[in-house]
Design a protein around this nucleic acid. Sequence first.
DNA 1: TTTACTGCAAATATTTTGCAATATC
DNA 2: GATATTGCAAAATATTTGCAGTAAA
Lengths: 157, 157
Amino acid sequence: MIKAENNASLLKRFNSYLDEQHMRHTPERDAIVRRVLNITGHFTIEQLKQMLDDDGFYVSKATIYNTVDLLMTLGILRRHCFEGLQAQYEKSNVPIHSHLICTKCGKVKEVRDNNFIAFMNTRKFTAFTQDYYSLCVYGVCNSCARKQKKKPKQLTP
Amino acid sequence: MIKAENNASLLKRFNSYLDEQHMRHTPERDAIVRRVLNITGHFTIEQLKQMLDDDGFYVSKATIYNTVDLLMTLGILRRHCFEGLQAQYEKSNVPIHSHLICTKCGKVKEVRDNNFIAFMNTRKFTAFTQDYYSLCVYGVCNSCARKQKKKPKQLTP
DNA sequence: TTTACTGCAAATATTTTGCAATATC
DNA sequence: GATATTGCAAAATATTTGCAGTAAA
């Protein structure tokens, strides 16, 4: 089994890439990458911007989008799109997990399942170079299941 | 194993629902549902509109969105969001399959894997009522892998 | 005749793009 | 000093909403 790269290693890879590509080391890029590496779980662009604001570091949305794109190109971030409009991002060095997505409230819960990982390690696809995978289980969370009995609600997010 | 509902049964369920809810049977709803039931694979709202246009049946986008929402509430359609901005839909009565998503070109390929289905049938989640699941495998398709050697390209869709 | 539905247009939300000002190398 | 990058504002894209006219029951 491959060991996940740690944050320090990811940061180093990012900086090396900038050098190789003759791209510049700016305070904005540095602040964004460092913030991103310290996030556990999913986040949206909006949330990332808020976190940077809270750190007292103003960065424009355009720059955040640019840098996040860069991080995806480098495979440091992955994009998910569960329910609703906003894309969610997560680091690539988190342990493999599945997503339980409630179709009523849109909440996403992460669950780890070692048997599932073991099973997936036996799978191979032809004419396709697998990078990573994500199992999304759609259904209704217990919290919504309870509410539903009282007040039926429209499913659409 | 539960047998998938056929199209005729889904159509019947749709019409019964309209009756129960005192909703109206309109030519637009009928055209949309019949068209949707005849689609195999994924489609976007835009593509569905085009198909209806080709059938010579004009329906506004607002009505298409409304009816597709209705079909999701009824569990006849499911929404996926793979790469890019547009949501993709597919019928719920298609056989269970996984998705191979190319992060270069955004193309989505469906693959069936009976061993995977068998494995998933052994899984159970706590505090969550599972409705359906979707395995998304991200990577690079052979077509893009070949192109990449010649002309490196930005990943972002 | 009542009122649910359609289609249009405007509003909202997210992401992308063009460009002048700025800061890195 | 050359030019990559930032931030702003405008554009592009997808979806939702409000409402007047229309049509199903």
